[in-house]
């Protein structure tokens, strides 16, 4: 069964500009689906709109969306909170700078515990286990630190840990490796892939990088100026593009070094 289904999504500003027009896409469980486009294409607005995180003055004009068959967006109005979480481009800025990692995780687990009945004693152990599950080898040391004392890659691992703590069925990743070093990026992409494989969740992966898309996603939506230009398997998009803009995007992809 389809995990996420989005249809006829349009996003507008208060002064009448259309940022996204008639967008549609679906994600299956255990699948990573990409949205690729350049700045201003509307890819981030699309991702934010699904979680009700649009900035002030921007709103969903119309569209329907459902997660696991339950509608959460009906005719442009949010009717339910979807079981989805999100990670962002700048992990260090996404974390609270005044709190140690431990306090942030415990607070999150306490919040989640209200719904799930996790005991207070179990939360510290759960926090450690969560960090271990995202490939952090010394969770105790990381728990004691503030975000600014950790690298961007480490903070993004912490973000992934917090995102999966809620046991979402969908993870939205908005440029999760942009700004990270390329060697760190490779490790975070692997973490996202292994998280999908072990938890069977779906991922909506927003990126401007064709290499990242090619190696991470099964299907990809190409956006340009708020319009969905193409939505297909990555193999088709990269080897048989149907849209002129997709062709330009592929042509501009810089040559890769041949040595592997």
């Amino acid at each position: 069964m389809t995990l996420l289904s989005v249809e006829g999504l349009s996003i507008r500003t208060a002064d009448g500009h259309t940022l996204v027009r008639d967008f549609a896409l679906d994600v299956n469980p255990g699948e990573i689906v990409g949205i690729v486009g350049e700045s201003g294409s509307g890819k981030t607005m699309t991702a934010l709109s699904l979680l009700g995180l649009l900035p002030a003055g921007v709103s969903v004009a119309c569209g329907d969306a459902s997660l696991s068959g339950r509608p959460f967006l009906r005719d442009g109005r949010v009717c339910e909170r979807p079981n989805a979480t999100m990670i962002f481009q700048n992990p260090t800025a996404a974390l609270n700078p005044t709190m140690k990692i431990e306090a942030q995780l415990i607070r999150l687990l306490t919040f989640l515990g209200k719904r799930r009945g996790t005991g207070r004693r179990g939360r510290r152990a759960r926090a450690e286990a969560l960090l271990e599950s995202v490939g952090i080898h010394e969770p105790r040391a990381v728990l004691r630190r503030y975000p600014h004392q950790l690298s961007g890659g480490m903070n993004q691992r912490v973000m992934v840990a917090m995102a999966v703590a809620a046991e979402p069925s969908l993870l939205i990743a908005d440029e999760p490796t942009t700004g990270l070093d390329v060697t760190v990026q490779a490790q975070i992409l692997e973490l996202i892939r292994s998280t999908v494989a072990s938890r069977g969740i779906g991922v909506l992966f927003v990126s401007h990088d064709m290499g990242v898309i090619a190696q991470t996603c099964r299907r990809v939506a190409v956006m340009y100026h708020g319009e969905l230009r193409e939505f297909a398997d990555v193999d088709d998009v990269f080897h048989a593009p149907r849209d002129a803009y997709t062709e330009e995007l592929l042509a501009s992809t810089l040559e890769q070094p041949s040595e592997r």
């Binding site: 390329v182 060697t183 990026q185 490779a186 992409l189 990088d209 064709m210 290499g211 990242v212 898309i213 090619a214 190696q215 991470t216 990555v234 193999d235 990269f238 080897h239 592929l250 992809t253 890769q256 070094p257």
Partner: peptide, 8 residues
């Protein structure tokens, strides 16, 4: 570490 822009 650079992702290859070709799914094949």
């Amino acid at each position: 570490a650079v992702p290859i822009a070709d799914p094949r």
